Simulated assay, not measured.
Amino acid sequence: MDRRKARIGLIGAGFMGRCHANAFRSVGGLFDLPVEPVPHMLSDISEESAIRNAALLGYKKATGDWRTLVADPEVDIVAVTAPNVLHEPIVLAAIAAGKAVYCEKPLSTTAESGWRMTEAAEKAGTLTLVGFNFLRNPMIKLAQEIVRSGELGEITGFRGRHAENYMCDPDTPHSFRTDPEGGGALADIGSHILSMARYLLGPITAVAGQSRTIHRTRPVKTGSLDRTPVVVDDMTHALLRFENGAEGSIEANWAATGRTMDLSWEITGTKGALAFSQERMNELLIHHAGGPGRSGFTKIEAGPAHPPYGAFCPAAGHHLGFNDLKVIEVAELLAAWASGGKCVTDFREAWQVQRCVEAIQQSARSGRSVDIH
């Protein structure tokens, strides 16, 4: 019996666009899904680029205008990997056209914009998913289960960090990342650690932030001697208060010399603790409080006992990678599309993360803590 077809329209063919394309190609060979994704149309910055990338990535049609893709009656799911500033118009048009929407994070450039998208999707009953793919790691799901089980006792603290070095060089040119609409380090990578904190511990109710712009000018383009002012943050620290009574902190830093992917966190409870780093993404460290001589963390290694690891490999210790997390994310999307269900990081959850980002930015400007209601 033929499986139902889900025809994919992909907007953007940069790094994340290619990750999406790879995930849609790979998911059927790893997950037993009731639906088959079909690469139908690709839209890119120009007609020429769209035609070239559609051929490379296996898409049947190509267009230089995303409006053509959204309006195509054969497209079922619109995957959005365009620049952040385009998310709202694309998404609202896709919702109006009756498409399911898979949007990369951040949801939009502001919480106000994100709310318009969320409200439109919920009123229309649209299936939505936002790409916080680090949450799809089986070790992160296991950590959530441990926290919720009470095994760690009362959760008292969270310390999180997302630090990378891709903006260390002061001569890295100005781009959408350093534009105010790009949001800076906190919006770009801090949203990942904030989404992780919410996933593991629940809602954040108050924040106090401090931000710094390390490189105050950047070249207007590669090789240019002309420089433009930078007004977004390179580094932000924030204190957090959670609804469950725990307190904690995060750091977002895209100019962290020597760090390539330090998405890490520790959770402290009255009976134990957990620790994780994306640099060792197939390991979760756990500590149970004990008597003298019983202190220390034990390593839990990812394996088939931690679904959906077994879909990729029948043996522990062989490791999942970044693109595998995107495949897991796409499997969730397609399963929800086939069943009429919903996804964990839907528009409403992404909007809540955006609210946390803006509250920290507001606190950093005012020097005062900000409540999130």
Rank of each mutant, 00 (worst) to 15 (best):
F322T: 14
D324S: 14
S295F: 01
P308S: 08
A289F: 03
N253G: 05
W254L: 14
R259Y: 15
D262T: 00
F276S: 01
S277H: 02
R280W: 04
L263N: 05
L284A: 04
K299W: 02
L285H: 04
I267F: 03
R280I: 02
G245H: 13
A311D: 07
A302S: 09
I267N: 00
P292Y: 10
F322L: 07
M261E: 02
D234N: 14
A246R: 06
A238W: 06
P308L: 06
A252H: 03
L274Q: 05
N253V: 11
Q278E: 11
A315T: 15
F322M: 08
R294M: 10
A256E: 03
T268K: 02
H319G: 10
I267W: 05
G303Q: 03
G248L: 11
A316S: 14
A311I: 00
D262N: 14
P314C: 08
F297W: 06
N244C: 15
G291S: 08
P292A: 05
D234P: 01
I250W: 01
F242E: 04
T260P: 00
N323G: 06
P314W: 08
A305R: 12
G291H: 05
E283N: 06
P304K: 08
D262V: 00
H319L: 07
S295D: 10
A256K: 03
G269C: 06
M261G: 09
F312P: 11
T257E: 08
P307V: 07
I300D: 00
W265Y: 15
A316H: 11
T260K: 13
S295G: 04
I250T: 08
L325C: 05
A275G: 13
A305F: 07
C313L: 10
A302F: 00
K271R: 15
A275H: 06
S249N: 12
G290Q: 10
T268F: 07
A252M: 11
